[in-house]
């Protein structure tokens, strides 16, 4: 057991250490007037609305 652990530790040390795997991007959007820090908490209807928003040209 002890040998095993030492062995694994050594292996990790020589590998490239990666961070952030599994983490998504934060997308802050405005709904109803409030901001929400993540689209995950939007209900299905508001998700659909956010997805379909088109940009307005300012020219």
């Amino acid at each position: 057991m002890l040998l095993d652990t030492q062995c694994t530790d050594k292996k990790v040390a020589t590998e490239v250490k990666m961070v952030g795997a599994g983490q998504g991007f934060e997308r802050t959007r405005r709904i109803t007037g409030y901001l929400v820090g993540t689209l995950e908490r939007f209900n299905n209807a508001k998700r659909a609305e956010e997805r379909e928003r088109v940009k307005h040209g300012a020219a």
Binding site: V16, K17, M18, V19, G20, A21, G22, Q23, G24, F25
Partner: peptide, 15 residues
């Protein structure tokens, strides 16, 4: 991501 180049859910090296 324009800064670190990772895609959603990917890892990026500590280095």
């Amino acid at each position: 991501c324009p800064r670190c180049g990772r895609k959603e859910g990917e890892g990026v090296s500590e280095e």
